[in-house]
Design a protein around this nucleic acid. Structure first.
Length: 500
RNA sequence: GGAUGGGUGGCCGAGUGGUUUAAGGCACCGGUCUUGAAAACCGGCAGGCCGGAAACGGUCUCGGGGGUUCGAAUCCCUCCCCAUCCGCCA
């Protein structure tokens, strides 16, 4: 969420930063967007001044009535009561106006992405990402045979089963068995151990391990920026009985449905006038009304697409003491993603699943610390890959490739021999105060008055499923067996996953 | 799911059957005193928004929303959350 005061005072900088992100937002150019917002803001402030002025008079008169009554001046009280009675109508309208404008303004602001940091490269898509050369690690391993992809290896071992998963859960799910199930568990435990360790120099680790809720409310999802724009990426969890109770009542769903039925009935009776487009639109309206109904169902929860959501929201609506910062949190959780926009992409294997597990890192810091914390967090994520001996590189995402809430993002890409290319395995973002504003998460500076918004950062440390893929592909032998990296051997209790 | 009781400032807690300004304590900050500290005493001490160069003024917030009223922490409706007991349950 943007600070309207900043936009007011630095319109040009706002427009320029927005323009670096994209050329248009909801069909409006950055300049038009700023104009829309500032116009709304001006109208809102005028409405607010008007409303408050009238309300002030009302309060003043009410106090006077109390005093008049105390003095038994019934006539004076009556006169004032008459005045306020007239004022009330106007005040109600004033308040409604003020509120409508305020909501419209907030809605506009809530739909805009964070502004990119100055050192983020500009560009429309991932082709414009820039490698951070000094962060690169290792060289792709050499094979004297053609390395296989992870799913070939896993299926050949009989330890990775997509077909049965599809029968039970549909596409984009998997069963891991035996040593591969244990590898998943070992990786999660190993990553948590690295991130929670206390290093003497304080340059790595120090994260507090958390087991967070896996289902969150609308407000939490709004706080980190998944809502309102990216609803389609999420899975909702509802209690079927509860939602039936709200959905069966009269309302727009029923109206829309009955209207569609009438159209269908009419067209059936008059085959010469059949208009499928009209009928389709009527049913579409029904579906949309039903969707709206579910959307407004308050007891719905969202399955987390990342532990970033419950971890970051841990400080929502709080005023922290500066001494509590930096707050570093980590959690190993399942993540659920609808992958609505990824139809046909990565359909084979475990790269893109509806469910995967991830060790997440979240830092809550004072504003001055966030840039350094971003580098530190990226170090923490890389540390896991280094200890696993996996070659990787780091790229700075360009303005067009960054997520909604990010100010700056590093993606870590691990080398996958089976795919013969680098694939994203971690994404570390500095969100500045963007999420903090949406969550209303603040802290009280040690010296100085008032409160300031905290800065929030999140990163994967790492995506466990993809790390498992990387281990399989990088540590495969010609016979299809998998060597276990040194640091995992005591977790696994073995040095090798033998071929079947 | 049923029954009952609750939700007040950073914390504790008074106020709750109508008349502005939320008592008091703890914690915290500043000061006096002291070699220093403690104690004592004095003072300060929620946040958001709008206007203002500032001083300051206004407005909103007593779990959320709505209502009654000239006026709501207080009355009414509704939702949420917490506690205890019962039932069911991993």
């Amino acid at each position: 969420m943007h600070d309207i005061k900043q936009i007011r005072e630095n319109r040009d900088a706002f427009v320029a930063a927005l323009a670096r992100r994209a050329s248009a937002f909801d069909g409006r150019s950055p300049d038009e967007t700023a104009a829309d917002i500032l116009d709304l803001d001006a109208r809102w402030r005028a409405a607010k001044a008007n409303f408050e002025q009238h309300r002030a008079r009302q309060n003043e008169a009410s106090r006077a009535i109390g005093q008049a009554k105390a003095k038994k001046d019934e006539a004076g009280a009556k006169a004032l009561m008459d005045e306020v009675a007239h004022l009330k109508q106007a005040i109600q309208k004033d308040e409604a106006d003020e509120r409508a404008l305020d909501e419209e303004l907030k809605k506009k602001l809530a739909g805009l992405p964070n502004l990119p940091a100055e050192d983020v490269p500009a560009g429309p898509d991932e082709a414009f990402n820039v490698e951070v050369k000094e962060r690169a690690f290792g060289a792709p391993p050499k094979f004297d045979f053609k390395p296989k992809e992870h799913f070939e290896l896993g299926e050949a071992l009989g330890l990775m089963d997509f077909e049965r998963a599809a029968k039970v859960s549909g596409a984009r799910f998997v069963y891991l068995k035996g040593a591969l199930a244990k590898l998943e568990r070992s990786l999660g435990a190993f990553m948590l151990d690295v991130q929670t360790a206390k290093f003497d120099d304080g340059k790595l680790g120090g994260y507090v391990e958390i087991v967070p809720p896996l289902m969150v409310t609308d407000d939490a999802a709004f706080g980190t920026g998944q809502l309102p724009k990216f609803e389609e990426d999420l899975f909702a969890a509802v209690n079927i009985r509860e939602i039936a109770q709200v959905a069966t009542g009269p309302g727009k769903v029923l109206e829309a449905y009955e209207s569609a039925l009438r159209i269908e009935e009419f067209q059936t009776a008059h085959p010469e006038e059949v208009d499928y487009e009209q009928l389709g639109a009527a049913y579409q309206r029904t579906a949309e009304a039903a969707q709206e109904r579910i959307r407004s169902f308050k007891r719905k929860r969202w399955l987390i697409p990342t532990a970033e959501v419950p971890l970051t929201n841990l400080v929502r609506e709080e005023i922290l003491d500066e001494a509590q910062l930096p707050m570093r949190l980590t959690a190993w959780t399942p993540c659920f993603r609808a992958e609505a926009g990824a139809a046909g992409k990565d359909t084979r294997g475990m790269i893109r699943q509806h469910q995967f597990s991830k060790v997440e890192l979240v830092s809550i810091v004072a504003p001055e610390q966030s840039v350094a914390e971003h580098e530190r967090m990226t170090d923490c994520a890389q540390e896991v890959l280094k200890r696993l001996g996996l070659a990787h590189r780091v790229v700075t995402l360009c303005t067009g490739d960054m997520g909604f809430s990010a100010q700056k993002t590093y993606d870590i890409e691990v080398w996958l021999p089976g795919q013969d290319r680098f694939r994203e395995i971690s994404s570390c973002s500095n969100c500045g105060d963007f999420q903090a504003r949406r969550m209303n998460a603040r802290y009280r500076p040690k010296d100085g008055k008032g409160t300031r918004f905290v800065h929030t950062l999140n990163g994967s440390g790492l995506a466990v499923g993809r790390t498992l893929i990387a281990v399989l592909e990088n540590y495969q032998d010609a016979d299809g067996s998998i060597r276990i990296p040194d640091v995992l051997q005591h977790y696994m209790g073995m040095k090798k996953i033998e071929k079947r």
